[in-house]
Simulated assay, not measured.
Amino acid sequence: MNTNDVSHSFITLGFGLATVVVVMAVCMWISVRQQKLTVVDTAWGLGFAAVAIVSVFVTQRGDGMPGTQTLLLVLVVLWGVRLALHLHARNSKLPEDPRYKAMAEADGRSFAQVALNRVFLPQGIAMFLVATPVMVGMNNVGTKPVLGWIGALVWLVGMFFETVGDLQLARFKADPQNQGKLMDQGLWKYTRHPNYFGDACVWIGIWIVAASSWFGLLTVISPIAMTIFLTKVTGAALNEKGMRETKPGYDDYVRRTSGFIPLLPKKG
């Protein structure tokens, strides 16, 4: 990657940042009108798809390899749109997420202030950070095909775990006989968070596609940040805190089941 390619990447990063701001501003406006912070869950997937689409148009005049641009566009849009549709369909049928509700009630400020400072601004920053391989990778020159294939394969593994895990959980919850029970079947038998594991794999795969240049390699902060968010910040950590309080037998499930990477369940 030469100086022109780096400058093109910075231009793409600038347009990507503007896209994140617009998406988050519009979704925050909807959130405030509906008094529902879970709108940000839908915004998360849509924001990445929007960044990928805008990046393609911005890099048309740059030196990005068309094959890499197309691959990154397809990988990100498929993942983002699927996730947004899944979360919107789930959240639209439910009241406010208890985690968001507790956040809004404990803060002591107006709903709009909580939405901006505690939800949309932090997640907008995280979105831009995680999306950097998409914006930089579209400006790569001389992309190695093997990295494209490896990245796409890792992405496919991630999409399998995320999509199938979400589908299995939705079907489990839809059965009235499972009300109050713990989901420990299917992929959930091997990891307590197949959807989060899949999410991490998706972004590792996208980073691998972008890693053909030294600038693309630097965007390794993206899958690292996503994995930390999923395991330590907004994902598994918050989810498990609530599960321990509401699901009988959850501690035993934790003992026998891997917390992230799929493994055979422990016996005894």
Rank of each mutant, 00 (worst) to 15 (best):
A200G: 00
P262S: 13
F15I: 12
P66K: 14
V136L: 10
K36N: 06
G64K: 02
K173P: 08
M243W: 04
M138L: 10
V136I: 13
A25Y: 04
V54D: 09
V40H: 04
S92Q: 10
A104R: 12
S110N: 01
K93Y: 09
K144G: 03
V136Y: 13
K93D: 14
V154R: 08
F48N: 01
G259C: 07
W79L: 06
A106L: 07
P122N: 03
M135Y: 14
N91P: 09
P223G: 06
V39K: 07
A237M: 05
M135Q: 13
V74A: 11
D175L: 12
L169F: 09
G205F: 13
F260I: 09
I30S: 11
P194D: 01
P95L: 15
V22G: 09
P122M: 09
M24P: 01
L169E: 14
P265V: 01
G242S: 08
M183F: 04
H193Y: 03
E105G: 07
V76G: 07
V74Q: 01
E245A: 12
R61V: 15
M65Y: 07
S31L: 08
G216I: 12
G151L: 02
A112Y: 00
L94M: 14
T163R: 06
V119K: 08
I224A: 11
R256V: 11
H88T: 13
N91C: 02
N2D: 15
A170Q: 15
L167F: 06
G259I: 10
V157Y: 06
L238I: 09
H86K: 00
K101V: 13
A43E: 00
E240W: 04
K189I: 02
V6P: 01
M183W: 09
D97W: 10
A84W: 00
K36M: 09
G148N: 00
G259N: 02
T163Y: 12
P248C: 05
A174L: 10
R255W: 03
G151H: 00
N178A: 09
W149F: 13
F128M: 15
P194W: 03
W44A: 03
K181Y: 04
T70P: 01
I53T: 14
L169Q: 15
A49I: 06
P145A: 01
D175A: 09
R255M: 09
G259H: 01
P194F: 00
S212M: 06
L217T: 05
G158H: 00
G186K: 14
S92F: 00
D175H: 14
R256G: 15
V76Q: 11
E245V: 05
A152T: 15
M127Q: 01
P145S: 06
H8W: 12
G14T: 09
